[in-house]
Nucleic acid binder design. Structure first.
Lengths: 171, 171
DNA sequence: CGGGCTTGGTTCAAGTTTGAAACAAACTTA
DNA sequence: TAAGTTTGTTTCAAACTTGAACCAAGCCCG
């Protein structure tokens, strides 16, 4: 089949998207590296844990929610564990598995750094979007995420919001 | 000032965006690694060169268009040069500068792999968006890019489109 | 001319990511 | 229940990224 190239409108959208996503990740990474001493991804991992019942999650589960590979997560958790922000625990019900749990120190880091992070996200994104655009962004992102199999409408936990919780666990 | 947290709508949009961008970059990286033997960023660098007059650009200029640091670009160009896809040339008018130029082999790689890349982008993004949504995506991305200083509406060259050109250069 | 500041690029070490391979526990089935 | 398969996680080497430090070549003025 003869390639269906992008239309001029699609090209413009694609270029704009690429530029924005690169600049955005860069800005967020820099801010978090500054204030929290870790890249965005690591912050997200902590946030995901914080969103989970009992502040703990199986590695595979955490990897899925964070949209990263298990191997990448292993490395990240090892580092976070060294920093004392996460603790690894064996899973009693399935001796193969291991569980990552947020420590008190981890919670503290989130509490301390969440405001600065939200501020950055606001300044870069939401302060410039209308209500409609926020809705459009969600819709478009959801469609893309879904197309990439990993659905994306799922009630998966996520970054920023950071808020307390609780409940039992292990799976 | 007491932190202005994200509204529920904003949170949903943000989470969806984060998931989509991670999944998308991943998918594109995998496809290009497969078919072109290089990550998305490297492909973009080639595409940017191909878009430039005479297929050549000063390093700093190329870094700006690619939205990456000069140091990152130095590394990338070194690799691409090893692969014979790019050639470094001294800049006659400013002996400090160096110019990256696409080689014939580089052009060939683009010609060969562009269709597969477009197809991937289509399958992941544009095949699922309405015309309005394409416009919304451009608008939103442009606003964000601009907020991050690097403006983003600029007629900067970019990824995908890949097409021939020509003209003198060096700057 | 001769510092001193700026600009264009590269280098270096430390940190991160990738993907394939290795392990080990759990499951399946003959 | 032993062999074979699947599942959960880690390991390892190679590739990539980051940020600070460095080296030149231009620039600016006294």
């Amino acid at each position: 089949m003869t390639t269906r190239w992008l239309t001029p409108e699609e090209q413009r959208a694609w270029r704009a998207y690429l530029a924005a996503s690169l600049l955005l990740e860069d800005a967020i990474d820099r801010q978090l590296q500054q204030d929290a001493g870790m890249p965005h991804l690591y912050y997200s991992i902590l946030a995901n844990l914080s969103d989970a019942p009992e502040h703990r999650l199986r590695m595979t589960d955490l990897a899925e929610r964070s949209k990263i590979t298990r191997s990448r997560l292993t490395y990240a958790v090892t580092r976070l564990e060294k920093d004392g922000l996460v603790r690894r625990e064996g899973c009693p019900s399935d001796r193969r598995g291991s569980i990552a749990a947020l420590t008190e120190a981890g919670v503290a880091v989130l509490e301390r750094t969440a405001p600065g992070h939200v501020e950055t996200v606001r300044a870069a994104v939401f302060d410039h979007l209308s209500e409609e655009q926020v809705g459009q962004l969600e819709e478009i992102s959801t469609v893309i995420a879904r197309a990439l199999h990993g659905d994306g409408a799922r009630p998966a936990s996520e970054d920023l919001p950071w808020r307390r919780r609780s409940a039992p666990s292990c799976s």
